[in-house]
Simulated assay, not measured.
Amino acid sequence: MDWTWFHRLGSPKWFYEKTNAWIPWLAVISISLLLIGTVWGLAFAPADFKQGNSYRIIYLHVPASFLALAGYYIMAISGAIGLIWKMKLADMVMKSAAPIGSVLTFLALVTGAIWGKPTWGTWWVWDARITSMLVLFFLYLGVIALQEAYQHQDTANKASAVLSLVGTVNIPIIYKSVDWWYTLHQPATLKLTSESTIHWSMLYPLLIMIAGFYCFYALVLLQRTRTEILSREKKTKWVKALAEEKGS
């Protein structure tokens, strides 16, 4: 089978040129969704009959948690592609995804702690879900550290990819932790196979926030990857020509 199309798809130059047109649209869509979701969720969604207004932290906590997990898969899959097919763009995406994922995981942990104080009476417990999310945070930091630990970029990419792939075993643990172990953390309210347990008046702004976070994640990942492309490809003719065009 001819895989030249696959390698052409992973061309840094092709990616940089094609994503020029995507950036403005993603920016408008993500900002619009986040504004609508934030205003709807904080100002118009009703208070919860048990938790009052403290539940509104879900409009940050849940999207951040979703993206922390999905972003890890993106990082790990990119690392696998880089290992197997030696695609430079995949390695760049993997490196670019790690800091974004670490910030989202940190945000999920902090907002979870803020939510936990009025709900459980404490900022932190060694709950199965929280502990596995903390492990995820350290995995992201490990990939970032490996990228900086080696002078040779190829070695850094291979080490980061291996850690990313090994760390994927933690993702199912995070998903199923509330089902496998006794835990203070509440079960999932958003379900694909059955009806969600959250009322539509709270659900709709949450879904908008999740969509906004996904679009914003894509926007930031594209921007970071484009910056990484320019850094690694700075000696190529097309990057030099681009720099001269911007300088003129």
Rank of each mutant, 00 (worst) to 15 (best):
L69R: 10
V135Q: 02
G82S: 14
T168Q: 06
Y182F: 01
G116S: 10
G101Q: 06
N157I: 04
H152E: 15
W124T: 08
A97K: 03
I173R: 04
K176P: 00
S11V: 08
L230D: 03
R8F: 07
W180A: 03
K235L: 08
S231D: 13
K117C: 01
E195V: 14
Y175W: 15
L163M: 11
I130R: 13
E195N: 09
G82Y: 07
A90S: 15
W180D: 07
A218L: 15
K158C: 00
H199N: 12
C215W: 05
I29V: 15
A128V: 09
H152G: 00
F216P: 00
V93G: 02
A159S: 13
I173M: 10
H199Y: 06
L221M: 11
M87N: 14
E244D: 10
R8I: 00
I114R: 03
P187Q: 09
L107F: 05
I173H: 02
Y59C: 09
N20I: 03
A45H: 10
L34N: 12
G116H: 07
W25P: 00
H185S: 06
L34Q: 08
G112N: 05
A43L: 15
I100Y: 07
G79M: 06
F213N: 02
L136F: 02
A128C: 09
T4S: 14
G142L: 05
W22Q: 05
I57F: 11
M92K: 12
E148T: 08
S30Y: 05
V143F: 02
M92W: 06
L26Y: 04
P99E: 06
W85M: 12
W124G: 04
E228I: 00
W126T: 07
G247Y: 01
S11E: 10
R56E: 08
F213H: 08
P24M: 10
L146E: 06
H152C: 00
A145L: 13
A159H: 09
G10K: 03
T105H: 04
A21R: 15
R8L: 04
W3N: 14
G10H: 11
A243P: 00
E17Y: 03
